[in-house]
Amino acid sequence: MDQIGWVIFLVALLFSVMLHESGHFVAAKRFGMKATKYFIGFGPTLWSTTRGETEYGIKALPVGGYVKIIGMTSLDEVDPEDESRSFRQAPAWQRLIVLAAGSFMHFVLAAVIIFGLAIGIGIENDNTTQLGTVAACVPQSATALNDGAACTASDPKSPALLAGLKVGDQVTSFNGVPVSSWTQLENVIKDAKPGSVATITVERDGRPVTLHAKLADVSGHGGYLGIAATTVFQPTSPLGAIRYTGSGFAQVITGSGSALAQLPKAIPSLFAKDRSQTAAGNVSSVVGAARETGQAVAANVGWQYKVSFVLLLIASLNIFVGILNLLPLLPMDGGHVAVVLWEVIRRWLARLRGRADPGLVDYRKLIPVSFSIFLVIVFFGVMLILADIVNPVNIG
């Protein structure tokens, strides 16, 4: 099952790459630009075919893809008869659309995934009183409780286990107080004194059952019963799905910004034993994402959780890649967008001063900057991949 998860992730990754390049390709063709190549991957060509003026194919290394549009920069050589169809001769607004189309496709794919997930499977909700876990023992401390420490032979059995509570029970009241959410249930448990006997009413197989449990005392935590909520998936309306999609985008954008900001600080801790407890635990490569997909598919949980986790991971990855591509750094799409915008600004300033159009930006001056940024990106990418291979962060 773990290997199936890896395959699912790789297929989804290649599909995302195809959509990205299709965005550039379709937009360029729509504006009459000449696209001579459409390839998935890099390196030696495994297969290709030519249709019309475009060669389509697959390369040996499935780590990206590219579309070759003639005349992308002032350095490209173009046949005189094709110059009118080159990228550089198109109006600025058309060039901006072509450049942004790749990231746009990532955002569309992510929105479709999240919206479809909310409508089809439902939104994950763990604020329910249905029991998903009944602990076997009483943890020795609040730290052991928070860390999910395993039970030892000397640990006493949990009050929930002794009381006869079972996974799937729906708690309806605690000490006579009706509860309809996990938040309410947690609050009334906290209000109960350790050592006191609590009366718990649950719905089991459609019938009410009343049980009694003597709450344990966990140092640093207080009264302890030994239960945890299950996760349920509740399908929502189209309007609710739209709101869920918007909140999902907002969370990923915020998280992406935080992860990028922490990346320089995370590098020294990538190979530390306590990586998960440092900033390095919040950053990952495609290898880490593939491993998480494999773990989720192989986990002993319901199919809804597996599908939800994998789809949200793929959607989050697409949003992150879309944002990363729009950063104003060469050689990424956002860097070329910045160049086009600078050409527009220069042209506007020249017109105000009554001067001639300065024309295209000389990319020869940008090569050192572009190459330096490329090396930095490769460095961070290689470090993350190595860390995810030899010192992975497991999702549990």
Rank of each mutant, 00 (worst) to 15 (best):
P235Q: 12
T49D: 10
L117I: 13
A35G: 11
L162V: 15
R30Y: 15
F107R: 06
D357V: 08
L349V: 14
K166E: 13
M332R: 05
P156K: 11
D147R: 12
K166M: 13
E81Y: 04
D191Q: 15
R351A: 14
D126E: 13
I121Q: 03
A356G: 08
L327F: 01
D126M: 14
S16F: 05
A272I: 01
M383E: 13
Q94E: 13
E53L: 11
Q89P: 01
K157V: 10
V337H: 00
M72A: 07
D169T: 09
L260M: 12
W342H: 10
S237A: 06
F371I: 12
C151E: 08
S74N: 15
L225Q: 06
Q94C: 07
L386D: 01
K157Y: 05
S219Q: 15
A241F: 04
K157Q: 15
N325C: 10
D388H: 00
K68N: 09
V63K: 02
A250C: 04
P194Y: 09
N325V: 07
L109F: 12
S16E: 11
Y56M: 08
P331N: 10
G257A: 04
N318F: 03
A110C: 05
A241M: 06
I319D: 02
Q234E: 15
N175T: 09
L352H: 14
Q277L: 14
S48L: 11
Q304G: 09
W47H: 03
H336E: 02
L14A: 10
P368W: 09
W182N: 05
V78M: 10
W6P: 01
D357Y: 11
Y56D: 05
T133R: 11
G381L: 12
N187F: 02
A298C: 11
F174K: 01
A280L: 01
T230S: 14
H212M: 13
N325F: 05
G71E: 08
V369I: 15
G222H: 07
H336Q: 08
F115A: 02
V301E: 09
P358M: 08
P62H: 04
T129V: 10
A149D: 14
H106N: 15
T210L: 14
R355Q: 15
C137L: 12
V376T: 12
Q184I: 05
L260T: 01
A279C: 03
S158R: 05
R51E: 11
F379P: 05
P208T: 06
S181H: 10
L326P: 00
V98F: 10
F374H: 09
M1R: 15
D76H: 10
D388M: 00
S22L: 15
G41Y: 01
G220W: 02
Q277C: 08
L330R: 00
I123E: 10
G246E: 04
Q251N: 14
G257Y: 00
A149I: 02
T236W: 08
Q262D: 14
